[in-house]
């Protein structure tokens, strides 16, 4: 057997998963050797896919999400004639985890796409009016494809991070539109970046017995957690607090998670900025 195998199934706690995790938590450490409030190392790479208008790869520990944004021209929706729109799509292919099977998008993939969309809309990071070329006639549509390569917990954090990194490097070609003739001239050489406001950062927490709160859970922690909580922070403001079921949490835990996610948000923001400036 190779020595550098991650950990054998036996050691991974397949036999008594709950006891395995509890034994660690009782000793004030997590199965991957982290302290309770430590987050995994993150890395970002931008402009890695040249065929897309902008792209990014976001890694949190083993969790990897690739984002590609493709811009297309389309007619605006009737109810919002001066607004462009984005269509985020989170894919959880069978490659990323044994939990997913081939076939139509799972419920979880659909919900993830929806959360990414709500985070984007609630944060107001991109004014949809900036995607308008000609009112009632022509707008940009941004197809944001987020593909999870490795599903090892806190996938939403990676999705939001990847989307923001990709949006920050997005450039759109200049388009001339003649409203009378309907002629469209695209100048692929003249590319302009899209003005953005802020950068929302999502942080996921897992909760265990006695209101133990740990940020950035791995997949095994996430699946055994008694509750999960996601906070989206943008600068001094919040733009999303999501918790679906699980054990009830008190206000103190909520406050603690708020302060933790603020620290993390600052870290992620700096990381994305460094990644962009270094390329």
């Amino acid at each position: 057997m190779r020595r550098n195998l991650p950990r054998s199934k036996y050691q991974k706690g397949i036999i008594h998963p709950i006891k395995y995790l509890r034994d660690y938590l009782e000793r004030d450490i997590r199965p991957d050797g982290r302290q309770f409030l430590r987050v995994r190392p993150m890395s970002v790479n931008v402009r890695s896919i040249t065929q897309a208008d902008s792209s990014s790869i976001f890694k949190i520990g083993n969790t990897t999400v690739v984002c590609g944004i493709k811009a297309e021209l389309a007619e605006p929706k009737v109810e919002t004639p001066d607004c462009g729109y984005i269509i985020p799509n989170v894919e959880l292919p069978p490659l990323c985890s044994p939990k997913f099977r081939p076939g139509p998008p799972s419920d979880q993939a659909q919900i993830s796409s929806k959360i990414v969309e709500t985070v984007f809309l609630n944060s107001g990071v991109l004014d949809p009016r900036n995607l308008c070329i000609s009112k009632n006639k022509l707008v940009w549509v941004l197809y944001c494809d987020l593909i999870c390569i490795d599903y090892d917990g806190s996938v939403m954090d990676a999705c939001v991070g990847a989307l923001m990194a990709a949006l920050k490097t997005l450039t759109l070609p200049e388009v001339e539109h003649n409203p009378d003739t309907g002629a469209i001239i695209v100048h692929p050489s003249k590319r302009l970046s899209v003005p953005l406001k802020g950068a929302p950062v999502c942080t996921t927490f897992a909760l265990f017995e006695d209101q133990l709160l740990i940020p950035d859970p791995t997949e095994e922690e996430e699946s055994l957690a008694l509750a999960r909580l996601s906070l989206v922070i943008d600068g001094e403001e919040l733009c999303g607090v999501y918790k679906a079921g699980g054990i009830p949490i008190s206000q103190e835990v909520l406050m603690k998670s708020l302060s933790q996610s603020k620290k993390r948000a600052e870290l992620v923001r700096k990381l994305i900025d460094t990644a962009i400036s270094s390329t």
Binding site: L238, Y242, K243, A244, G245, P248, S250, Q251
Partner: peptide, 10 residues
């Protein structure tokens, strides 16, 4: 205590 939470807006 809080069981679930959903928000919109900033």
């Amino acid at each position: 205590d809080l069981v679930s939470c959903q928000t919109t807006g900033r």
